[in-house]
């Protein structure tokens, strides 16, 4: 028997600056899924996550456990955005930073999460003194603070070295195994998508493919998704590019 969807997106449309960023998107995510979102630059991947979180105006229905997403339910959705700028001279230590996002201070939990992500030795230093990879690990630890049921990762392993990336995938895999954490992650690493995801969503401003990763994702789909968009961009821009990402 199929389980009740934890996240359901129906007829989602997003327009930004007069352009259709997402058109008629429909999909469901079951509890415990690890879904990868792939697509070329500008295909609406980040916008999809931001729409789920209510950060961009949109049309259509997005439900969490069968109900529209309210601020209260947002606390059950952890989010790691792409790297963002902040004042690196601010005297905010790692421990402070974690504590800020916790509803009720739970020292043990902060310690455990920082330990999971190998950040305990840095607990009392300023977040501005962390490397890009350490900062990403901190942001993932932060997103897990309030026991989310769903974790949204927007290229969360960008800037993290290979060993760190494996650690992050291992921890998320463990949380998925043990706590049935549902994960939706955006990635440009097709290898990681094959290795870690159970479902895949291919975006090119509309949903090009959706389903079990190993059934849906093949060379033709990837070529269509990345090469066609690339060729369209070349044609549109009138420039010749000899390489592509897929």
């Amino acid at each position: 028997m199929a389980s009740k969807p934890i996240l359901q997106v129906k007829n989602l449309n997003v327009q930004l600056g007069g352009h259709d960023v997402l058109r008629d998107i429909n999909f469901t995510i079951e509890p415990g899924d690890i879904a990868a979102v792939i697509g070329p630059n500008g295909s609406g991947k980040s916008t999809l996550l931001r729409a789920i979180l209510g950060l961009v105006p949109h049309q259509g229905d997005i439900t969490y456990a069968g109900k529209p997403i309210t601020p209260r339910q947002l606390q059950k959705i952890g989010y790691v955005p792409q790297y963002f700028e902040f004042d690196r001279t601010l005297p905010i230590a790692l421990w402070d930073f974690m504590r800020l996002w916790q509803k009720k201070y739970d020292r043990k939990k902060i310690g455990k999460l920082l330990d999971h992500f190998n950040l305990i030795p840095k607990a009392n230093i300023k977040i501005g003194n962390l490397s890009g990879g350490q900062l990403q690990r901190l942001f993932i630890a932060r997103a897990l603070l309030n026991d989310p049921k769903v974790l949204l990762l927007d290229e969360a392993t960008a800037g993290v070295d290979v060993a760190g990336e494996e650690d992050i995938h291992e921890i998320i895999g463990h949380l998925n195994d043990v706590h049935k954490l549902t994960v939706i992650f955006i990635s440009h690493e097709i290898g990681a998508v094959y290795d870690y995801s159970t479902k895949v969503l291919c975006l090119s401003n509309k949903l090009v493919c959706f389903g079990a990763t190993h059934q849906v994702l093949n060379k033709q789909v990837l070529a269509d998704l990345f090469l066609d968009t690339h060729l369209a961009a070349v044609k549109h821009g009138g420039k010749k590019h000899k390489h592509h990402h897929a």
């Binding site: 979180l53 950060l55 209260r72 339910q73 947002l74 606390q75 989010y79 955005p81 963002f84 800020l100």
Partner: peptide, 20 residues
């Protein structure tokens, strides 16, 4: 204090965590 710091630090992250 906590709400105001997280909003000042990053509006989007604060909004995504359910802050008003």
């Amino acid at each position: 204090f906590k709400q105001l710091v997280i909003i000042a630090f990053n509006t989007e992250l604060a909004e995504a965590s359910g802050a008003r």
